[in-house]
Design a protein around this nucleic acid. Structure first.
Lengths: 204, 204
DNA sequence: AGGGCCGTATGACATCTGTCATCCGGCAGT
DNA sequence: ACTGCCGGATGACAGATGTCATACGGCCCT
């Protein structure tokens, strides 16, 4: 063995974060040198610590793990990126790959895959679940335009058309047009279903 | 010290489950003797293993941690129950307490609280987050009737009134009446908001 | 220069949703 | 016996939502 692999761990839930650190701590060749709880703390932390692999949860306050990955990839390309998530959404996988991630793991995979992935990305390999990769390819890209996505996202909490129009600085008719096209593209019958399936695919 | 505390760990996401096991494994006086990934595997596992404390996640397939807790409390009252959850929803806390739980922890609490809680419940103490307890009391009990809850739950995926009527064997008008009263009880303006806040409070 | 897509907007229309009044039968409490 | 609540239902009405045709300016690609 050469030397220990230095890891940054980004995950907002303390208990899970520290548990994952404990898990990685069981490996002789891996050392968690820094932990953060927010997406926007990832890059600053990496500037201050010498890290080989960054392990990023997606759902975090401040910035998502995918957004953080994109920033790190641009500024510190030598750092390997492992994206970890609760939800194996095809759109997440696609987003992570486009952001320069080297591995994509779901949290219901066996724990052993975590340390494995860390070693593999450091060796230059990429690690992705083949089933999820297939699903991502089958689904194709996000069919929604930026505006449609914004409106759908804003509509997700049950806001009315009038509220959406105010918040987004659009006319009510335009809001309805966007929602209507989104509903058609997703092949569903109302905004609530549209929100559900867009969220499910990781397109929101 | 007397002897090691034997723990059952129930959590569906393997990576998190094994990470939590690793975390607890760092404690000299605690031993995870059995792990399960489904709510309906908890009671059978407890029948076969001698366990002091059961650690139950809420969101699990098969049965929720709260449902599992109620069954265990009825059949094996000697087993102490720690309910662990991602979402600190007041209704969850209330439900867990009514099911006989001895402790209620949220996953974004510091990791140290986990082992602490295990020791405390074994000593006969109860462990709950005071902030959450206050919120649960402030919110009062779930104001929805069984039927209103069922209809709201069924409506959560964006189903239309006609579909709800068919699935629930009700007339369309009745479906609308239930949704209407639910909307008023929750003081919101449409079903989508009603679903969101009911879910948020843990009333769904 | 023209075609295509996007963002934005309007008006008209049909349908869905939410509210309200009112009704019935059953059951629990007084 | 009476009251109140729940489950269930109907009909009428107002307002919200979804669809469609149509329009215009901007931008990219050919």
């Amino acid at each position: 063995m050469t030397r220990t692999i230095k890891v940054l761990l980004a995950e907002d839930q303390s208990m899970v974060r520290e548990a994952l650190a404990a898990l990685l701590g069981l490996e002789d060749d891996i050392e968690v040198v820094v932990q953060v709880a927010r997406g926007d703390e990832v890059l600053p932390a990496l500037r201050e610590h010498d890290v080989d692999v960054a392990l990023l949860d997606i759902e975090m306050p401040g910035a998502t793990g995918i957004e953080a990955a994109a920033l790190v990839h641009a500024e510190l390309p030598a750092v390997k990126l492992v994206v970890l998530t609760t939800f194996g959404r095809p759109g997440y996988l696609r987003g992570a790959m486009e952001a320069g991630a080297d591995a994509f793991l779901v949290k219901d995979a066996p724990a052993s895959q975590l340390a494995d992935a860390v070693r593999k990305v450091l060796a230059g390999e990429r690690v992705i679940d083949p089933t999820l990769a297939a699903a991502a390819l089958a689904d194709g890209a996000n069919p929604l335009t930026d505006r449609e996505r914004e409106v759908l996202r804003a509509a997700a909490d049950g806001s009315t058309n009038a509220e959406l129009a105010t918040v987004l600085h659009l006319s009510q008719g335009t809001v309805r047009n966007y929602l209507s096209t989104a509903i058609q593209k997703l092949a569903v019958r109302n905004r609530a279903e549209a929100v559900r399936i867009a969220r499910d695919k990781g397109w929101l």
